[in-house]
Simulated assay, not measured.
Amino acid sequence: MSVAAHTTPSGYLLPSIHSAPPFFTKQINPTTRSIADDHWARIILGYARHRRLFTLRVEDAETSGNDWDEIFRNERINRRLLPDHLASLISSMVTNNLAVYEPPKQTRSVLLYWRRPEEWADVLHSWVASTGQMNTIMTFYEITDPPVESPLSSLPIVILRKAIDVLSKSGRAQIIAIADGEGVRFFPGGSKI
């Protein structure tokens, strides 16, 4: 079988390395492992962005029929990513600030940064400006579950908070206590990160 790029049923283009059987094996040589880990991280983050997936768990390599099957299994070469290999990849991604353990104090589940919090901050601020909601108080729910789908729809609150923190530090947002929790007010100015 030739090593070639492949498009998944969901339309994601996997690079040719995904068709190489050794790619699914945790490499012993540190240099080779680092290169393979970088390729895996790009595939995982690209696929997560393509499918708008925010969470990755070691269990995703253990079970079939989940959102990650298209990239963790390659039936054409009869290979799959093993859970201990995925755990190692997750650790590497956290070390490289491409993911964060969520919930904290465990190592089997992460939130993926297919956009860094700084990028989410810019997306959030642009969306608020485009919807004419500057200087109004919004709940986190209004941001992550708007009546019209937005780039922020279904954004995990942990990532939203990090984006708001970025905006707060630059004077473009402020967390405000409201009757049923917290809200946030956005400002047009401030220094852009």
Rank of each mutant, 00 (worst) to 15 (best):
M1V: 14
S2D: 09
A4I: 14
A4M: 15
A4S: 15
A5G: 13
H6C: 11
T7F: 07
G11L: 01
L13G: 10
P15Y: 03
I17R: 12
I17V: 13
H18K: 09
H18E: 05
S19A: 10
P21K: 04
P21F: 05
P22Y: 06
F23G: 09
T25Q: 15
T25W: 15
T25P: 13
T25G: 14
K26E: 02
K26N: 03
P30E: 02
T32I: 15
T32P: 14
T32E: 12
R33D: 05
R33T: 13
R33L: 06
I35K: 13
A36K: 10
D38A: 05
W40A: 04
A41K: 07
I44L: 03
I44A: 03
Y47N: 04
Y47C: 05
A48N: 08
R49S: 09
L53I: 07
F54W: 04
T55Q: 05
R57L: 10
E59M: 12
E59N: 13
D60P: 06
E62Y: 04
S64R: 08
G65Q: 02
D67K: 06
W68G: 12
W68C: 09
D69T: 07
E70M: 02
E70C: 08
E70R: 02
E75M: 11
P83C: 05
D84H: 11
H85P: 12
H85I: 12
L86E: 04
L86A: 08
A87I: 14
I90R: 02
S92C: 05
M93D: 03
V94R: 04
T95R: 06
L98T: 10
L98D: 09
A99Y: 01
E102T: 10
E102C: 09
P104F: 12
Q106C: 04
T107D: 09
V110N: 07
L111N: 04
L112M: 03
Y113C: 08
Y113T: 12
W114H: 03
W114T: 07
R115T: 09
R116C: 07
R116K: 12
P117H: 08
A121K: 04
V123K: 05
H125L: 07
H125E: 00
W127A: 03
V128A: 00
A129W: 04
A129H: 07
T131F: 00
G132H: 01
G132C: 04
Q133G: 00
N135Q: 09
T136H: 01
T136W: 00
T136V: 08
M138F: 00
M138G: 02
M138S: 08
T139I: 11
I143D: 00
D145I: 15
P146Q: 03
V148R: 03
E149V: 14
S150Y: 02
P151T: 06
S154G: 05
L155P: 03
P156G: 09
P156F: 01
P156Y: 01
V158K: 15
I159S: 12
I159R: 11
R161T: 10
R161C: 09
K162M: 06
D165C: 03
V166H: 08
V166N: 11
L167N: 10
K169W: 04
G171K: 07
G171T: 09
R172H: 08
R172T: 02
A173W: 00
I175L: 11
A177V: 15
I178C: 10
D180A: 15
D180H: 15
D180C: 14
G181P: 04
G183T: 12
V184M: 00
V184D: 00
F186K: 00
K192H: 11
K192Y: 05
I193W: 14
